[in-house]
């Protein structure tokens, strides 16, 4: 899906827990998330911690959209 949206010329970043899968399916900009059932906020942690995780990782995804890359890139968070 990411690939087809990018093919249409729209800049896209995929946020994924299974980074190797995202790489295989052809996403070019990838930002890791923390898990599969709760990619952006662990319910076992306090609300403010979850918000921090979400805000930081979505922020990293926005940075990735503004970053020129030559090859498929997995962006580091924080």
């Amino acid at each position: 899906m990411a690939k087809e949206i990018e093919r249409a010329g729209i800049t896209i970043v995929q946020m994924a827990n299974l980074v190797p899968v995202a790489k295989t399916t052809g996403a070019n900009r990838i930002v890791p998330t923390i898990s599969i059932p709760y990619p952006l906020g662990d319910p076992k942690t306090p609300e403010d911690e979850q918000w921090k995780v979400r805000y930081t990782r979505v922020g990293a995804a926005l940075d990735a959209l503004e970053t020129d890359i030559e090859d498929q890139t997995v962006f580091k968070v924080g």
Binding site: M1, A2, I5, A8, G9, I10, T11, I12, V13, Q14, M15, A16, N17, L18, A22, A27, T33, I36, P37, P39, L40, V58, A61, L62, L65
Partner: peptide
Amino acid sequence: DLKDAGVQAVILTST
């Protein structure tokens, strides 16, 4: 659909 709506950037979340 995104192009028609003038969207230039996408964040795709996967699980």
